[in-house]
């Protein structure tokens, strides 16, 4: 299926979860301090492995950077 992960179009196999989308960005899904939004709704880390992705979903994967 086709998804938009951090603004970039990506192909992920059917049945992929939010955790797979995190891994697709190159981030370690077990790294702390990472947040995910699926179509603008925050997905808590505890639900990453159970939350299925779907065609045309927009996923944002974020972490801490210097700021403020």
């Amino acid at each position: 299926m086709r998804l938009l992960v951090n603004g970039t179009e990506r192909q992920l196999p059917a049945g992929s979860t939010v955790r797979d989308a995190v891994a697709a960005t190159g981030a370690d899904p077990d790294e702390r301090g990472v947040a995910v939004a699926l179509d603008d709704a925050v997905v808590p880390r505890s639900a990453w492995a159970q939350t299925a992705l779907y065609e045309a979903a927009r996923v944002e994967v974020l972490r801490a950077t210097a700021g403020g």
Binding site: G26, G33, V34, V61, R63, T65, A66, G67
Partner: peptide, 26 residues
């Protein structure tokens, strides 16, 4: 203080560095 950005734009390690330094993240 820290900001949140897409992982491709955030090199990583900052959160851990703050915790190593005994501080809290705002």
């Amino acid at each position: 203080t820290v900001a949140l950005r897409r992982v491709e734009h955030a090199p990583g390690g900052l959160y851990e560095a703050i915790q190593r330094g005994g501080a809290r993240v705002l």
